[in-house]
Structure formats: structure tokens, C-alpha cells
Design a protein around this nucleic acid. Sequence first.
DNA 1: TGGCTATTTGGCTATATTACCAAATAAGAC
DNA 2: GTCTTATTTGGTAATATAGCCAAATAGCCA
Lengths: 110, 110
Amino acid sequence: MKSSITPQYKARAKIIKAMAHPSRLFIIEELSKKERCVGDLTEMIGADASTVSKHLSVLKNAGLLADEKRGNSIFYSLRVPCIMQFIGCLEDVLFSNAKQHNEILKCCKR
Amino acid sequence: MKSSITPQYKARAKIIKAMAHPSRLFIIEELSKKERCVGDLTEMIGADASTVSKHLSVLKNAGLLADEKRGNSIFYSLRVPCIMQFIGCLEDVLFSNAKQHNEILKCCKR
DNA sequence: TGGCTATTTGGCTATATTACCAAATAAGAC
DNA sequence: GTCTTATTTGGTAATATAGCCAAATAGCCA
């Protein structure tokens, strides 16, 4: 790849990589509904708080989340709502994959 | 995370993970313009052909690409055009990150 | 101040990913 | 058939990621 255009793709990949984990996708979806503090998410996810904290920092580092300290807690929120449209596209992919898989199965069962 | 809902997030993460690499993003974008064979992409990317082949198989495995053998070559194409909308959203994120960064800089220079 | 609660950081191990090379495979061309 | 081209597979080393525990930090509350 021409090195002159690499940085752009690296920057995009960094954001996508930040999303590329089941727990982080869960967090994104949850935060698209309403803001949450680390404790909330930790309980929902059921992992160690330090693990969830690290997931949050990955997302924040990619520019996807905003955080705000209030009282004793830090509330995270989704900074980029357009991300959620993409989840819809993922579901299309999954559906289309399943359909294709079915067709193959049908064909093999003949 | 409730184990009952985990599979859905894992399935989504698999697709996103497949996209989460600079060369693979480049491939996706290139294939959104027109189908290409491995050799074309290898030349454009400038990596070993085996490396590019593996990238293609990751994307294909996730259900993002279709392939068709014609003559001596295998032509890959993008199976899921809605992916490209997402790239636009990524650019929004990057822009918004840059803006935020500028604001911080401005604030620090005061 | 001292004790809580919420969150982050550091250390560590296990696992996954990347990219290269060399070798295998597949299918045309002759 | 043999040669050639296109692509994939296997092996390997370097690097990155994930998750837990223990410890550090930050700020509220008596």
C-alpha cells in the first residue's frame, strides 16, 4: 500500500479495532441508550471492574466515548451516534451469511 | 454479560474484527469500486501475496466478500455494500476527534 | 483525619494476530 | 504431458490483546 495513504487507513483501523470486541460492542449499544458509570457496566457484563475499565479506555481513546465525573462516579456516554447505524449493517451481513449457509445446507441435503 | 446474549455480540465482533486492519480496509474500499483479483491487490498494497491472500480469506470468512474464479485468476468483490456507509461514519469520528484535539490545543495555548 | 466507594494502573500469563518465507496446489497455455 | 502463472497453506518469530489479581488513586462522608 502506498505509504502516503497508509496513515488514513491506520486511523480508521484504530477506531474499528476499538469496536472489535463483544464486551465493547455491548458497551457501545448500552451507551447509545443512556449514559452509564463503570459500575453499571461491570455488573451487566460480569467481568472484573478493571477489565471493564480497560475496555472503556480503549473506546475513549479511539474517540468514541465521552466521560464526565459526577458525584462519586464517572459517567460514560456515546460520543458518535452514527456508530449505531453500522450495527444495523452488521445484522444485514449476519442475516445474509445465514441465508447463504442455509442455501448450502439445502443443497447438500438434496 | 449475560451468557444468553453473548453469541450475538461475538458474531458482530467477528465481522468487525475482520475489518480492523489497515490493509483490509483498503481492500474493502477498493472492492467497493470494482472487483479485483489477488494479484491486483497485492501490487497495490505492496505486501507479500500470501499476506494479501490471508487478508482476503479473513474478509471472506466473515462473509464480507464473494469470490469467483475466472480464467487464471480469482476475482474478489464486496458482498455487503452497506459497509461503505460505515467508512463515512469513521471519517466523522476522525474529524470530530481532530476538532476536539484542536480545542484542547487552543485551550492550552491560552 | 480516617474509612468508604468507584475507578484506574501495573504486573503477569495465556492467547491471538501479523507478516514473511518456502512449499503446495490449481488450472491454463503450449 | 511439462511449463508457467495465480493463489493458498504451513511454519515460525515478533508483536499485540485480554483478563485477572493486587495495589494505587481520587473523592465523598462522617
